[in-house]
Amino acid sequence: MHAEHLHLWQHNHAFGQERRRPGEQRTLIVIAITLVMMLIEISTGILFGSMALLADGLHMASHAAALGIAAFAYVYARQHARDAEFSFGTGKINALAGFTGAILLALFALIMAWESLARMLQPVTIAFDQAIAVAIIGLIVNGASVLILDAGHDHHHDQDATSHSHHHDHNLRSAYLHVLADALTSLLAIFALLTGKYFGWVLLDPIIGVLGALLVARWSWGLMKTTSAVLVDRQGPESIRSKIRASIEQDTQDRVTDLHLWSIGPNLYAAAISIISHKPRQPAEIKRMLPTDTGLAHVTIEVNPCCTQGTGT
């Protein structure tokens, strides 16, 4: 075969990752908002002597770092989408960033729990009026950030336990959970400050802090499960595998003997399929039979005659 004809059988592995994803711009906007609010809460916390505000500001700093990781992942994946060193493109950088964000969420939950337990043992004096005012501003800002990221957040969940992650931009989901955790922290802080001011229930603040930490830990665990499944190439959804088998075996004597399906990016899958057949067909013909609504971006097909030496059939 002439070298000039090789390009007809070659293709890149960008799979659309070179395009700017909707979550990238939203993440950058939220980073700017978070940094401004972080500076306000830290400065007012120091000025008014409010440990609650200072702690919330430091929490926002940790989330700003997590959002920064998300933004970096978007840019890096886009700029290296056509880099041949990435066997199946840069789609998994999305899951890697999401997994990193999940770990940071878990650390955030531990810090929340630690600070709450410390306040149970050593209560601090709080300037309630100033702290409540700034906490309300924080809630408004965090709520706006949640809405910005939620605009691109896919809420569909597949019932297949191995697959519900494939509907998500894991990087965006990580950013979304971080700002949602911030909003939850602000809401709980307001409730605790109000009860402390009007009812003297100072101990309620650390108790609510522990409950909030448990909720954030649960979000973290869920995100870890979905992103780690992508990173370790766990088998893709059974619903898609069933469609692939049905498209190949229906009305034929062909049988799928081995099928590997794994995620290579948001809504993108690669598949390696082994088929045994009485009348072997060309792989190109079989590829045309595969379902087009499953996100299959890279497919390798091996066709074997069923009556081969040593098979016993």
Rank of each mutant, 00 (worst) to 15 (best):
W114E: 08
H168A: 06
K225G: 05
T308G: 12
N267K: 15
V36A: 02
R173F: 05
W201R: 03
L39K: 02
T257E: 13
A109E: 01
G209D: 00
P266G: 07
A14R: 00
T292N: 10
K197Q: 14
V141D: 02
S165L: 06
G265N: 09
P280M: 06
D160I: 11
N94E: 08
S220T: 01
L204R: 09
S145F: 02
A272E: 11
Q253G: 14
N94I: 01
S277A: 11
R78Y: 11
C307Q: 14
A14V: 03
S263V: 02
I190H: 03
L203I: 14
S62K: 04
L194N: 09
H164Y: 15
V232T: 10
H59W: 06
A66V: 04
G222T: 09
V134W: 05
T257I: 13
S186E: 04
K197M: 13
G152L: 10
H63P: 00
L203C: 06
R26F: 05
T292R: 12
H278F: 12
F86D: 06
T162G: 15
D56A: 00
G152M: 09
N94T: 02
A102T: 01
G196V: 01
I240V: 15
A270P: 04
M1P: 14
D258H: 15
E41S: 08
T90F: 08
Q282P: 05
P206G: 06
A77H: 12
T257Q: 10
R82L: 14
I140Y: 04
L54E: 07
D233L: 08
R119W: 13
I93W: 11
S165I: 01
G209L: 00
L268P: 03
I40R: 00
A127M: 04
A297C: 13
L67N: 01
Q122T: 14
A32R: 01
L54C: 03
A131L: 04
F88S: 12
A113L: 07
R288L: 14
E4H: 14
D182G: 06
A14K: 03
T257A: 08
T90P: 05
A14H: 03
A284S: 15
A246Y: 11
Y269Q: 10
K279Q: 14
G310H: 08
I137H: 04
R245H: 09
T90I: 11
W219L: 10
P283Q: 02
E4L: 11
A131K: 01
I244L: 12
V36R: 00
H156Q: 10
Q10T: 10
E249R: 10
